[in-house]
Design a protein around this nucleic acid. Structure first.
Lengths: 224, 224, 224, 224
DNA sequence: GATGAATGAGGATTCATTCAT
DNA sequence: AATGAATGAATCCTCATTCAT
């Protein structure tokens, strides 16, 4: 709330007041902890220790744990989703380019991998804690993604009632990459979140879309 | 709540002693709650209330919350994964059939949708709480799935280094279906876990595999 | 709540279970503390220490501080007020005997002087915390006391619109005696709550009524 | 809330510096809150919010909560009691006039109804927090009121040992009127602190004294 | 004079666990 | 096998207070 739409990377230009810096550090720590342990697995003690501050100080910046959580979500998810919406809308006139959309999403999430895990937690605990914000964002995103895919040339091969499943599948593949990264590293020694790992996954997503929704036209490689 | 089907599978054959029945009811309730809220989001009070018993009684059946959680995982994930391994092994001689494998997984998970969500929680909180059991199971499953896919006729079109990503992608799509079901119902009014929803998803997975790994040969339909 | 209408003096006959004894001891301690320091001036730590128990144990008997307070009020005030109502009703047929009523009230309050102070706290913090119970009891008591006084022979000398003030005045005099006792002892060295002090006050109340509401008939001395 | 009249008496003559005005506003708000909820039921946050200032600002005017409370008491009770003492002393030569004394007290308290409730809180929590000031004032007031009554013509009908009780009774009736006003309004819809309510009570007190201490002489009306 | 930030102490409450019954 | 009672540890949060600005 108080932290509003504070952008992810330090705006650099504007001089920070001390409290602002603290609030941001709280958000950073909390984001990481919430992503790792979920809401109830994260204690304010952990957050405070991570920030290097006493617990009551947290309350000078956020009125409650719930509010802190909401602020983390807002700061983290808000920009991603709005960038997404913006992108989708800006491409609405031209031909939809799903691969490019996924590129874009991967770019955004790669910068803050915690976000993906936060969303996963939200999704998992579902109807109970699902923040109204997420609820508000999910719908337009999904419906636009669906529109995008439905307008795709190669969509004909899909049963219309499978389109939502296709959208969901892409959603799961994108987010799951970040979710499973720590475990995967543990099991296979391979870091999915490394620059290389992310590049591979981005390329993979591109081919996935190309394969699932062939355009019958010269492949649209990303040349942005 | 979501686990309305939790008590669905009483093995029926074996006669139960009373205590055993209680233990199982505890497991059922706990499974549903752990699936919905994760480990730290679930309290023994919730479990006890769900079972209709006082908290200390839980300790007559499980020595601790951790142990209860482990038991839930074991009872839930163990059979699924071992059935899976068994299936995979039994097909090892013949030609691998990825679509069929996914069918099978869907069948198993559909019967206990909580399991998928439990695994997701485990995956999310990752390296910290990831039960050794999961760790032990993940590897063989993944490696076999990988073998299966690598032996697939249509695999040539994929860069070898993308095979793991493909395996993971299928993993995410399968599990994600169960994860997102409650939220999806909330947003779209459509129950992904209904008989119809599961059938659609199973069919979708089949086509997914067919598309991603075209066999260039007529046999595509499951005729088990 | 849980402690229901547990009567003030130990019922003696019925064997007590251990928890019941604890609950009662909690109520005793809490009553004394709430009377002395009010609701917010009393901490559960004080209560627990007074009882000789750790704080969380209080929650085995009362679900919250508020509930404990309510139970204290109920146990303390309930019997007094209901005895009062009973008495008033039983005398409804005969000639009202205000002096006797006050005798009765003094008797009841003398046995548990904390009650009077509890009621004073409630009255003081008034509309904010005034328990619904008190609200429910005040009205009938006041209206009956008013009826009683209005039916009094000697009431003619009072302007009808002063009757409520007269009722209130008696209320204040009765309760104030208990309220000011500690201070008075401090200032004057005289214990208003001693047997003698209470007897003097009871006699004083009798004469007060006799003087304020002369019956024009041989004085009705209490011979109960 | 109840202290709507709190800011009623700005001494007017003396020009205020700004800081002084803030200090006074703090006192006003604190008086009202302390009167309504007592010392521990009132937080500095409440006070600050009531004043429209941040908490630390309070410390620019009062060194602590205790000091603020003391200042409230001093400002509130001091003038009332000293006006009272003054009045009592000025009449010392002439014949004591108890009804007039009560009139005077009512006048003083009516202007600041919070004061009466503050004193009640002090009295209730008694020996523990009873401010030395109160202790210092109680004695002379009571002793003078006692002198006044003892010198009263009609006092003969009272047992000498009942005189203190009579003094206390009048004390309770006077203060209780202010104490119970909010509750009474709630229960009966009648505002005891309205101009009319106060006038009625003043008249009532007069008749009370007349009745309890009949003068057997014509002078009863106040002709100040 | 005002305030944002920080904090030690403490507030009510919950939680997992134990134990006697 | 079940449970009422008890509790150490921890949870979120509030409070009065301080201090630098």
């Amino acid at each position: 709330m108080e932290s509003g739409l504070a952008s992810a990377s330090p705006p650099a230009g504007r001089p920070r007041r001390k409290g602002e810096r603290t609030a941001e550090r709280i958000l950073d720590t909390a984001e990481s902890l919430f992503a790792a342990h979920g809401y109830s697995g994260t204690t304010l003690r952990d957050v405070a220790e991570g920030v290097g501050v006493r617990i009551p100080s947290l309350y000078n910046h956020f009125p409650s744990k719930e509010a802190l959580y909401a602020a983390v979500l807002e700061r983290g998810i808000g920009p991603v989703l709005s960038a997404l919406l913006e992108y989708v809308d800006s491409r609405a006139q031209g031909r939809p380019d799903t691969a490019r959309l996924l590129d874009r999403i991967m770019q955004l999430l790669a910068r803050r991998p915690d976000i993906a895990r936060l969303v996963q937690h939200e999704t998992l605990t579902g109807g109970e804690r699902l923040s109204p914000m997420l609820r508000d964002w999910f719908l337009p995103i999904f419906s636009r993604a669906r529109d995008s895919i439905e307008a795709h040339p190669g969509v004909d091969q899909w049963d219309p009632e499978q389109i939502p499943l296709l959208v969901l599948a892409l959603y799961h593949v994108v987010l799951g990459h970040f979710t499973i990264a720590p475990v995967w590293r543990d099991l296979e020694g391979d870091d999915l979140l490394s620059t290389d790992g992310l590049a591979r996954q981005t390329r993979f997503l591109g081919e996935l879309v190309t394969t699932l929704l062939p355009e019958h036209s010269p492949r649209t490689t990303s040349q942005e």
